[in-house]
Nucleic acid binder design. Sequence first.
DNA 1: AAAGGTATTTTGAATAGTCAAAATAAATGT
DNA 2: ACATTTATTTTGACTATTCAAAATACCTTT
Lengths: 220, 220
Amino acid sequence: MVTSTVENYLKHVLLLSEEADDLVSMGALAAALAVVPGTATTMVKALADGGLVEHQPRHGVRLTDEGRSVALNVLRKHRLVETFLVNVLKMDWAKVHQEAERLEHAVSDEVLDRLDALLGHPGTDPHGDPIPSRQGKLRSQVYATLATCATERRFRIVRVTDQSPEFLQFAEQNGLQPGTSLRVTERNLAAGLLTLRKPAGRPIALSLAAAGKILVEPEK
Amino acid sequence: MVTSTVENYLKHVLLLSEEADDLVSMGALAAALAVVPGTATTMVKALADGGLVEHQPRHGVRLTDEGRSVALNVLRKHRLVETFLVNVLKMDWAKVHQEAERLEHAVSDEVLDRLDALLGHPGTDPHGDPIPSRQGKLRSQVYATLATCATERRFRIVRVTDQSPEFLQFAEQNGLQPGTSLRVTERNLAAGLLTLRKPAGRPIALSLAAAGKILVEPEK
DNA sequence: AAAGGTATTTTGAATAGTCAAAATAAATGT
DNA sequence: ACATTTATTTTGACTATTCAAAATACCTTT
């Protein structure tokens, strides 16, 4: 049976496999799910029995087609719910992630479709993360980050990849959300620091680490 | 810890204690939760340990103040979610109950408050069931049913107490929802049958059993 | 008051998910 | 190549929730 625990495992395998391509390590998976490694091993073996993942002992996990389809559906629920919470209920950008963590397992496909329609079939959630389509297509595109983009050129933020409330709070306070346009005025690799400017407003200082979590695309 | 299982037990104790006043029997509770009686006993003892209910062995259960407050909160979530599903997402009246069964455990208090505001602080859900206030007040009022009300007088439906999809489907098809006005034209106790008329429209025949599930109040 | 019948509780066992800690395998440094 | 570190798996145990079936208590009814 696909319990919400199973959904969580699959979702995290999907998310982690976007970075560490191909196999996801047990360690990474266990960390993402906040369980001890042994638990992840046990669970992954059960999932493999159920045909949802492929487990290569001592190497890692990969989703099967079936597992991938379940994971994409959960991710779609998560991101549509987040969009609903922000756009309709006007909730704080930083809080919606945890809310959606619970709701993603309780929303039926029918409710989801209606939510999707209500929101006008959005392509991304408020963080700029792409929302998988009902058919399970996930648009994925490689973006520059504030840490790597050209200086003195105008960019627009398309996505904020850190979901922690602290980071989102910081981003919100400085108006760094998808849609914001800005340019990097200075980048100091030695100090690990950069400065950026929005069209109107004072300069904002940012660590390189933080900058790497903000994806941008050239404007116009 | 208050798991969703615990929430369900408490909610059903609350619901059942409205009818069978004072103590709720194990049998009734077990039936409502679709578990065998032994399971209910075990669980109730655990709840009693946690101070959420008072268990009088061989006689029944009653909510403590703490348990009651948890139960009312769950009920509030259930009914506000139902209202949202019908009023905003335009879902089928008959389906929302099962949806809400899952969502009631996943919605946070904050989301609930925003939902409540979005819906304009409704006093009842689409079935006419009263929605507990945030403070845990539950307006309860004794209504006549179609099985007991006067004939040839105009009444308005205030509540439909059977939540099964079959019954709700039937009610919907015949336009028997909270707000509908009608009068009972004939009641045949022997045949267990009654006939009613809406202001415009043909007579509708109804079993006495079904009629007992539709609460009404005199109009004007 | 004995005999049944019904509701409730007990007991023993199962499942899902978890942790702690020991065992094992693989990777790395020197 | 050998010892050490690191990652993974195994093992044994625990919690929450459930069922099946046996035991017990409480009513009735005669």
